[in-house]
Design a protein around this nucleic acid. Structure first.
Length: 412
RNA sequence: GGAGAGGUACCCGAGUGGUCAAAGGGAACAGACUGUAAAUCUGUCGGCUCAGCCUUCGGAGGUUCGAAUCCUCCCCUCUCCA
């Protein structure tokens, strides 16, 4: 029996929402080495959970023996926000975009190999920034029909709220990316979120018109959690893939706190476990679903942060929530001087300082509502201070609500 | 460029001189119940040195004992016309 078709793997795991020509895509994965790409916008100095689907899709494609291209959209991002920015700010943000691109580049390499012939990382600034406007209009612009673009679903919404000429051109630039990737690397497949459908199709049309070859596109569904929230948003903000921005422990906690209804989907999307195992875990009922969540959290953390960090995060999680194990070292930690403790330090101040609450006022409210804990003892008063007697092995454990922990270690 | 409608807290959205730190909804946070889930109920939801004070209703001035509310100028968004 031949190895499973890469397209079927993607489809089975839920990555396919729309596809231009299903048979053509499946056949090409059978017959040849396919080159596929996904774009990533360098709008922050780290990718986040919302970008994971693209990374996982590329990883599956590479595992199937094909070639994956991660495209950093530093050229498209360079156009930036047009609203009344000065020259200098534009220059600054250009530097920022480059810096972001550098950081993101390192992250992408964790999900699929960028070594050798099966993985590439490319930045579109390399061809977009040097474009000559008139030449571009003559060579590429002539293939686009404004009439047709205006009827696109993606623009319909924007026709009501306003669409600048710059934004209108975005699709053309992205289509051009696809053409360049075809010409330089033989790329014939683009994947993206379902909101990218219009842009992907525009690229396919351009490749066909210029090069007379068929290209294909696949979109994955736009994910929300069962609660309807945008994927990867928490109280603290986005869940980042960079350990400096979201620690492996917090990352692990994000996944283990998934809604029951999301667990099976997430296992398919965000782990490499075989589907038989995903389905088995998805069948668990009631409190047993926690086992599935532990697997999800561990596997997802392993992919992003490595097995060692995933193990530490799991141990810390079990120590904090399950009562078992004592290894709390993966919990977010900061240090404090003995001198400050001896001088009398209000716990409310500490809660705010460690980031467990956003302000002292919130810390006070938290204590008044009975949601603040010191070493798992409820903090009863907003006047309470930290004393040396609270130290256990030179450390104390602060907790806000049921789930958020912070460890303080005395500095010598 | 002309005419009109608007800009209110994380989002939506009430509020036309004092009773407004500003209704209501959503989101979020805490508590109860649970399974580190959901649903439900209760509370909180600008900041602070918190029974008090400070800073908010696009921006800057002004009128008034008192302004999110009235006046002037400016900025921005949308709709229609050119």
């Amino acid at each position: 029996m031949s190895p499973p078709n890469t397209y079927d793997i993607l489809k089975e795991r839920g990555f396919v929402r729309q596809v231009t020509d299903e048979k053509a895509v499946r056949d090409s994965f059978c017959k040849e080495k396919v080159t596929a790409y996904v774009g990533f916008d360098p709008t922050a100095d780290s990718l986040h959970v919302g970008n994971l689907l693209g990374l996982m899709a590329l990883a599956h494609i590479q595992r199937g023996g094909h070639r994956s291209i991660g495209l950093i959209g530093d050229g498209t991002a360079m156009i930036g926000d047009p609203s009344g920015k000065t020259e200098m700010r534009k220059m600054l943000s250009a530097q920022q975009i480059v810096a972001n691109g550098d950081k993101i580049k390192a992250q992408i390499g964790r999900y699929f190999s960028l070594e050798g012939e099966h993985g590439l990382l490319i930045r579109n600034a390399s061809w977009l920034l040097g474009l000559n406007y008139v030449a571009f209009l003559r060579d590429i612009g002539r293939y686009f029909s404004v009439n047709r673009m205006l009827t696109a679903e993606a623009y319909k919404i924007r026709m009501e709220t306003g669409l600048s000429f710059m934004e209108f051109n975005y699709q053309i630039l992205q289509a051009y990316d696809f053409l360049v990737l075809y010409q330089q690397h033989g790329c014939t497949l683009q994947l993206g979120g379902d909101d990218q459908w219009g842009n992907i199709v525009a690229g396919i049309d351009l490749v066909r018109r210029v090069e007379s070859v068929p290209a294909e596109g696949v979109t994955w569904p736009l994910l929300t959690t069962a609660g309807g929230a945008k994927m990867g948003k928490t109280a603290v903000g986005a869940v980042w893939l960079a350990a400096e921005k979201t620690s492996p422990f917090e990352y692990y906690q994000f996944w283990i706190n998934s809604d029951d209804q999301d667990v099976e989907r997430f296992l398919a999307y965000y782990t490499f476990l075989p589907m038989t195992e995903v389905e088995r875990l998805g069948r668990l009922q009631g409190a047993d679903i926690r086992q599935a969540k532990q697997v999800l959290a561990f596997e997802a953390t392993k992919i992003t942060h490595g097995e060692e960090e995933a193990t530490r995060a799991r141990q810390a999680s079990e120590a904090a929530f399950g009562g078992g194990g004592q290894d709390l070292t993966a919990i977010p930690t900061s240090t404090i001087t003995r001198h400050r403790i001896e001088a009398g330090l209000l716990l409310v101040d500490l809660l705010a300082e460690t980031g467990l609450t956003t302000s002292k006022g919130n810390a006070r409210k938290l204590v008044q509502q009975g949601g603040a804990y010191l070493n798992d003892e409820k903090i009863e008063s907003i006047e309470a201070t930290l004393s040396s007697a609270d130290l256990d092995n030179d450390s104390v454990l602060l907790r806000a609500g049921k789930k958020r922990y912070h460890r303080l270690i005395v500095e010598h």
